[in-house]
Amino acid sequence: MSIQGSDADYSWELRHDDRVVEYGALSWSDEHPWTGKAATSPYEMGSELFDLACACAIEDCHDTTIDARMEGRPDPRPVGTVSVVLRDRSGAELVHMTARLEHVPVTAEDVQDAIERLRASEEEDRRAAEARRLRAEEPEETDRWFTEIIAPPVIPRPDPPEPPPAEQQRITDLEAEADDLRESVVDPDHCRRKLFEAEQRLAEAQRRERRLARDADESALDAATAHVERCAQRVGFWHDRVGEATETYLRAAALDAEATRLRRRD
């Protein structure tokens, strides 16, 4: 695929089996959305993206299998191969890497661990929501005094009339744009759950690394250190996705708020 006529220097493509799952076009100085780094060379960029893509595919297949078993559904078909392709402006291939994935079987213990992590995440969300509710329901002393003593009684406003057709079209366009924005990213709650799981895996990997360091098992320690680095990459990946999704949902909320304001305007 040629990208001539654009400002991009190269295009990248990520495939699962024969299906393209992500692609894009960037300048060499642009930070890649997966690695967060600019490309110093096609091979280095392709290699780093390839390593991360393989690790993500294996982890995602593992997680979707666990989710399916928790919900009583059949196991999903795992990704068989992962490919990364980088092309220059003319469409000629710069890098093409493919790997056949080997998936670790999901055990009953894995499912139980996931259930416990999910419960911990839900409990954390519940406590945060309760704290926000209590803060919202607890007015400042001056606010309470003003509300109870000075403020006049609130007179309900009548329902606003239906906006004229042109205004209604503007409202419809704003709401449609908000929906499109939300559909363009993964749900923030899902991203936060994946970030929580990635942080748990990183903490577990770091504990194993420290344990092997005490045992002076150098060969096993090297593998554990590499695993910690991969887990840290996953934390960074989902941290960025949480930020992107949250920002996009906030933009959508602003559009919804503007549509609501127009609808309520007299």
Rank of each mutant, 00 (worst) to 15 (best):
M97W: 06
T98H: 00
T98F: 00
A99G: 05
R100M: 13
E102C: 14
H103G: 02
V104E: 10
V106W: 01
Q112T: 08
D113H: 13
A114T: 01
E116Q: 07
R117S: 08
A120Y: 03
S121F: 13
E124H: 03
D125A: 10
R127N: 04
A128N: 10
E130D: 06
E130H: 11
E130P: 00
A131I: 03
R133S: 10
R133A: 14
L134I: 12
E138W: 13
E140H: 00
R144F: 13
F146V: 05
T147D: 09
E148A: 08
E148C: 05
I149E: 15
I149S: 14
I149C: 13
P152R: 05
P153C: 04
I155Q: 11
P156N: 02
P158D: 07
P158C: 03
P158R: 14
D159Y: 00
P160K: 03
P161Q: 05
P161S: 05
E167A: 09
E167M: 12
Q169N: 11
R170F: 09
R170K: 14
D173C: 04
D173Y: 11
E175I: 04
A176T: 08
E177A: 14
D179L: 00
D179W: 01
D180W: 01
R182S: 04
R182V: 07
S184F: 15
V186T: 10
P188N: 01
D189V: 14
D189P: 02
C191T: 07
C191E: 09
R192I: 08
R193T: 01
R193G: 08
L195A: 05
E197W: 07
E197D: 15
E199R: 07
E199H: 02
Q200L: 09
R201H: 11
L202E: 01
A203T: 00
R207I: 06
L212M: 01
L212H: 09
A213M: 02
R214Q: 09
D215I: 12
D217C: 03
L221H: 07
L221Q: 06
L221T: 12
L221N: 02
D222Q: 15
A224W: 10
A224R: 03
T225W: 11
A226N: 04
H227K: 12
